[in-house]
């Protein structure tokens, strides 16, 4: 019961804050609204749910080119930290680093992944809302039991953030995560491209 009360309290605070921003909207001229500039920076925290989508088998002769990943993995979780610098008022370039985990259905084996990506973000602005559209590319370390794989990762995403006007933005992000595990030679038939979706709560600090 106490927990519910806390959640309700913080939600009220959150909506009051947003309400206050909307209330100010008419009084602030659009040209004065908290625009970013080249050299400004952001620091973000993302945490949320990992949804396994499918493993793709790129072999043209594969009997099952698309294997439902959700039949083999339970939904997992993840946490990222992100740093970015503004190239201009609409674009940031930065680094994102985090940890992802999920557990296998059959024997509860834990899959851990640590993606590190260079992330480019384009901001669509509808004050006080921001829609960051991002693309990231980088390296990923996957671990399952004694197996360790070091390979590439790519992600595409979109979010919705509310500028709270005090250097903070809050909101959510949806990312599509592509993790190829590519082999050559006799293990080439073990090549898979894993596809996940991440849904996150995000807090962004501007400075």
């Amino acid at each position: 019961m106490k927990k519910i009360a806390y959640v309700v309290f913080f939600l009220l605070l959150f909506f009051m804050q947003i309400g206050a921003i909307f209330a100010q909207e008419e009084t602030i001229p659009p040209e004065n609204i908290n625009l970013y500039d080249k050299g400004d920076q952001i620091f973000s925290l993302h945490a949320g749910l990992l949804v396994p989508l499918f493993f793709a088998n790129p072999d043209p002769g594969a009997e099952t080119p698309v294997i439902p990943a959700y039949e083999h993995l339970f939904p997992g979780g993840f946490g990222y930290i992100e740093w970015g610098g503004f190239l201009n008022p609409d674009m940031t370039l930065g680094l994102e680093f985090g940890g992802v985990f999920a557990v296998s259905n059959a024997n509860r084996r834990a899959l851990f992944m640590v993606p590190v990506t260079t992330k480019y973000t384009y901001l669509l602005r509808f004050y006080p809302l921001e829609v960051p559209l991002s693309v990231g590319i980088g390296v990923n370390v996957s671990k399952l039991n004694d197996q360790l794989f070091f390979g590439p990762v790519a992600k595409l995403g979109a979010g919705l953030l509310v500028d709270l006007q005090n250097e903070w933005s809050l909101g959510g992000n949806l990312h599509y995560l592509i993790i190829p595990e590519i082999y050559f030679g006799e293990k080439a038939d073990k090549t898979r491209i894993a596809n996940f979706l991440t849904l996150s709560f995000s807090a962004q600090y501007h400075f």
Partner: peptide
């Protein structure tokens, strides 16, 4: 990219059977 041991992480998940 490397994983010299094992059979591939995602392939391994795909073919895993309950023990």
């Amino acid at each position: 990219s490397c994983n010299t041991e094992g059979i591939g992480i995602f392939y391994s998940l795909e073919t895993e059977l309950p023990v």
